Amino acid sequence: MQHSAIATQFYSWNGYRCAYDVPHEGQGVPLVLIHPIGVGLSRQFWQRFNQAWVQAGHRNTIYNPDLLGCGESDMPRVAYYPIDWATQLQCFLQTVVKRPCILIAQGALSPVAIDLVNLQPDLVRGLILSGPPAWTLVTKTTSDLQHRIAWNLFDSPLGSAFYRYARRSQFLQRFSIRQLFASDHQVDANWLEMLQAGASDLDSRHAVFSFLSGFWRQDYRHRVAQIEQPTLVVLGEKASSISREGKPESLDQRLEDYLEAFPQVQGVKIPGRNVLPYESTLAFVDAIAAWLESSPISKA
């Protein structure tokens, strides 16, 4: 895999060192990227998107932070809630970006973006959700005790052993084909090498186990209803999801749920499955660009 030569920069939040980079400096409303959480995932997830966005001639400055517990940020042994990452990014907006931006959140990190908009609405001009989870998963609070029991199981020698197994190339390849990508051939060496490099530090398991423990499964309906910023929901045509009741959910229903919930929202379907900025990069760039061109938020 070709590693970016972009310099890593750091800021401090709650005594932790948090990493980010600026893949492109330009003009207009900046983009702030929120990477997904998973074995080996970090801000490097956005490399393909960043390159394609700039190559397409778009001039927005791009800010690409590592969430706490991921990439080059500190990795404390704590249970991470969405509000923790949102508060970290609030500090990032206040101290690094310092101007209204457009948030782009991948997958089940949508709750982090929702919390962030509620925390700091004056520094968010627009919101883009890439492959957000089934609406039923973010509209019902599950037991925090249940989450804590899962966390305590993961935060054990058994959990450490599982993580060592899960970061093996064969496991990552099987999981990616089964859960993330529409096309098997897209699960390439670049993807697998990125994940293995990101998971090389065993302390990266804490963020992953926090996600798997389900701390993000809360009822976000009230917080979503407060969001006045224009929002774009992008779904893959082969997006897979299971509702809370364990039933397959139709893509049209999934999109309609989001269109009904957000006050000012548009939706679009593009080729791909669940990791659109990586698997369907050009289509994802085009979808965002078209939305921005038709929206007043792109005018700084």
Rank of each mutant, 00 (worst) to 15 (best):
S4I: 06
N14M: 06
C18A: 10
D21V: 09
G28K: 04
P30G: 04
L31S: 03
S42G: 09
Q44N: 15
F49Q: 08
N50L: 08
A52M: 11
V54D: 11
Q55C: 03
T61C: 09
L68R: 07
C70F: 03
G71I: 05
D74L: 09
V78P: 07
A79I: 11
Y81E: 14
I83R: 00
I83H: 02
T87M: 10
F92C: 08
Q94L: 03
P100D: 08
C101V: 10
I102C: 03
I104Q: 00
I104W: 05
A105E: 01
G107I: 03
V112K: 00
L116E: 02
P121V: 06
L123Y: 14
R125A: 14
S130G: 14
S143Q: 08
S143T: 04
Q146A: 14
Q146T: 11
A150I: 11
N152E: 13
F154H: 14
Y163W: 06
R164W: 09
Y165A: 05
A166T: 06
R167M: 02
L172V: 08
F175Y: 15
F175C: 08
S176L: 11
L180C: 07
F181M: 12
A182D: 15
Q186K: 15
D188G: 13
W191V: 13
D201E: 13
L202P: 06
R205G: 04
R205V: 08
A207E: 03
F215Q: 10
R217M: 15
A225R: 10
E228V: 01
G236Q: 09
S240E: 05
S243V: 00
S243W: 10
S250F: 04
R254W: 14
Y258R: 00
Y258M: 00
K269G: 01
V275G: 07
Y278T: 06
D286V: 08
E293T: 05
S295G: 04
